[in-house]
């Protein structure tokens, strides 16, 4: 009698295991972990992507904010979740860069699987339109003549700071770096005259450029931006500096290939919807879609470069 019961239970168990293993993904909500607070640009992007990807996955995508720890809280939550594809994270270049700095001892770049990238944005160097400096060359000259240039931007050891440091090294001048808490603060200080020149995301200053209050002296991308045709790249000016901010999605390493492919496919369909494209245009973002392999390559290159630049800080 016991043998019969045991075999039956084993059979049922096996049946259950088999059916769940073959169950179609996704069966329930998918969570997108986001390390910035609600309302921030990365959070909005995650919510927009979630909104447009939902119909392609037939399940709700929920953005869960896990701020704190300089991005570490989100990473920790992502790594604590199972690799079943139901938990992914939104990530920016700045967060990955943090793995070279304050989160060095807590997380490793190789613990993550890269899904796809959505946005690519270079950084911009901007001044007020009535500034005495109308080009990077003017700025360098002023610095050489001994003026204390107040260069502001987000964070210390951030990509913007590293870009400014690299520029000062290549031009053989010194700036005084004023670290601010975000793009909005950087622009506010520029407009108020407390910083003379800032490094920021182009999207943050576009409205002021259109209003004629701010001028972009250079951008740090590979090529000029379509909506800022007059701003040269640092490369064109002779400085070998190419730094871009990417915003994409990652998962914990070990996510099954089919599930990964499904997620990537759905997201790529979602971002091709006209509604999402409109959102990108409104927020002045250029499409930076990269598939998993390309995204991994790009992110790794960027990560290594940041590591090199960190040496400049010492």
């Amino acid at each position: 009698m016991t043998k019969f019961v045991l075999t039956m239970s084993l059979a049922i168990l096996l049946l259950v295991v088999c059916t769940t293993a073959d169950a179609a993904f996704p069966e329930k909500n998918i969570t997108i972990l986001n390390s910035s607070t609600a309302g921030s640009p990365t959070d909005l992007l995650a919510r927009q992507v979630a909104h447009y990807t939902e119909p392609h996955l037939k399940q709700p995508l929920i953005v869960l904010n896990k701020p704190g720890g300089g991005g570490g809280v989100m990473f920790a939550a992502l790594l604590a979740a199972p690799t079943d594809g139901y938990t992914i994270g939104s990530v920016t270049a700045a967060q990955m860069a943090a793995l070279q700095a304050q989160l060095k001892n807590d997380f490793s770049f190789d613990s993550f699987d890269f899904l796809c990238n959505v946005q690519l944005e270079p950084y911009a160097i901007a001044v007020l339109t009535d500034s005495p400096w109308q080009s990077i060359g003017d700025v360098v000259e002023a610095a050489k003549s001994g003026k204390n240039i107040l260069f502001g931007g987000q964070g210390t050891g951030s990509s913007m700071h590293l870009m400014a440091l690299q520029l000062s090294k290549l031009a053989d001048v010194k700036f005084t770096w004023l670290p601010y808490q975000g793009g909005a603060e950087s622009v506010t200080n520029l407009l108020g005259g407390h910083a003379e020149i800032i490094a920021t995301a182009p999207a943050t200053v576009m409205q002021y450029v259109e209003a004629g209050q701010v001028k972009v002296l250079a951008i740090s991308g590979e090529s000029r931006l379509s909506y800022l045709p007059d701003a040269p790249t640092l490369k064109e000016l002779g400085y070998d500096i190419v730094l871009t901010q990417y915003r994409g999605f990652i998962a914990k390493k070990g996510i099954p290939e089919e599930i990964k492919a499904q997620l990537v496919d759905a997201i790529s369909k979602g971002i091709r919807e006209p509604g999402f494209k409109e959102f990108m245009a409104q927020s002045k973002q250029e499409d930076g879609y990269m598939d998993p392999a390309a995204f991994y390559e790009y992110a790794k290159k960027d990560f290594d470069k940041i590591g090199e630049l960190m040496q400049l800080m010492q």
Partner: peptide, 14 residues
């Protein structure tokens, strides 16, 4: 600001 952006509006001097 985020909400305005979603609505397709641009907060700013204009």
């Amino acid at each position: 600001i985020g909400a305005l952006t979603i609505q397709g509006l641009q907060p700013g001097p204009l």
